[in-house]
């Protein structure tokens, strides 16, 4: 089994390389360049800048020199934030995004999973419909809407009451400043997890082995927790892998709305500014997170299903 995981990790390397390759050339295909600001730059200055960043070299040469630097762990200088390297920008933003993302995913699991599973205990009851309905609403309303609504509610309407919350800004990660963005980040995932766990639990409760467990006279709680739950968790775990990777690498919408110094913002700004190296850096980090998250999902499959462990 361990050799299987080692192999999976090795497959991650060509995957990352492919990401680098595509991303590099796609960025260059986009019209415009990093120095096309609003105020026109004098041609001599532009020529100097282009030379300084090797933008006049043949594209393949630029690619290989980027790749070479990357292998040494150097993401290169940012085109826009001229005092920083991309490595520095990521090192600043990533911990913030990870903290928020992790809080959000834990919150989403802690609320979504019990919600979905208890809904099945009383299938088609009012409670079940309420959970399904709320989950559907949580999925269809985009975060930029929930974000604004929560800001309106807790920042404006409740202003002056004890329930007032900071509606933006980071304040060095003070707890109160985190509540709204983490909530907005978590909401759609609460909804997804509730829906998925409800569906897979219903499936699990129909299996023959659950019937056997009930025929043994085990209390329903034991039947659900000991026999049904584990097999119902597989689809949830499948969803959680990519979802976690997505959340940890920062949400551009939420980080923009709440002015959070995570790496999600860099992605949007970098793309708009044609800050080639910054976009590349954030994308590569994101891809690495997805690869690792999927690997962890595979390991969790082995925990949930002894058959997988065997193979």
């Amino acid at each position: 089994m361990w050799s299987y995981f080692a192999r999976r990790l090795l497959i991650g390397i060509p995957t990352l390389l492919a990401v680098v390759l595509f991303c590099f050339f796609l960025m260059r295909l986009a019209p415009g360049g990093p120095f096309d600001g609003e105020a026109p730059v004098p041609p001599e200055v532009l020529a100097n800048l282009r030379a300084r960043y090797h933008l006049d070299d043949p594209l393949w040469q630029q690619f290989f020199s980027y790749l070479g630097n990357l292998l040494r762990g150097d993401f290169g200088p940012s085109f826009k934030y001229k005092d920083f390297t991309v490595t520095e920008l990521i090192a600043q933003g990533l911990p913030v995004s990870i903290e928020n993302g992790l809080s959000a995913i834990i919150l989403a699991i802690l609320i979504g999973l019990p919600l979905g599973i208890t809904a099945t205990l009383s299938q088609n009851s009012a409670r079940d419909y309420a959970v399904s309905g709320l989950a559907m609403i949580g999925i269809v309303i985009p975060t930029f809407v929930t974000g604004q609504l929560l800001i309106l509610a807790f920042g404006v309407w409740l202003k002056g009451t004890p329930f007032q919350l900071p509606a933006g800004g980071w304040n060095d990660g003070a707890f109160l400043n985190r509540i709204l963005p983490v909530t907005v980040l978590a909401l759609p995932f609460v909804a997804y997890i509730a829906r998925i766990s409800r569906a897979s639990m219903i499936e699990a409760l129909r299996t023959n082995f659950v019937r056997t467990a009930r025929a043994k006279g085990l209390p329903y709680r034991t039947v659900v927790l000991r026999h049904a739950l584990k097999s119902a968790l597989t689809p949830v775990v499948t969803f959680l892998g990519p979802a976690t990777a997505f959340l940890l690498t920062g949400s551009m919408v939420i980080e923009t709305i709440f002015q959070i110094p995570g790496i999600g913002r860099y992605f949007v700004q970098g793309a708009l500014n044609r800050d080639y190296t910054l976009v590349m850096g954030v994308t590569i980090v994101g891809a690495a997170f997805v690869i690792v998250a999927n690997l962890i999902v595979d390991m969790l499959y082995a925990v949930l299903d002894p058959k997988v462990r065997y193979e």
Binding site: N208, A215, K307
Partner: peptide
């Protein structure tokens, strides 16, 4: 009162 089920391939909990 006990019951023996007919499908042995699916009657046991796979992860226990």
């Amino acid at each position: 009162l006990a019951m023996v089920f007919q499908d042995p391939m699916t009657a046991l909990t796979p992860h226990m």
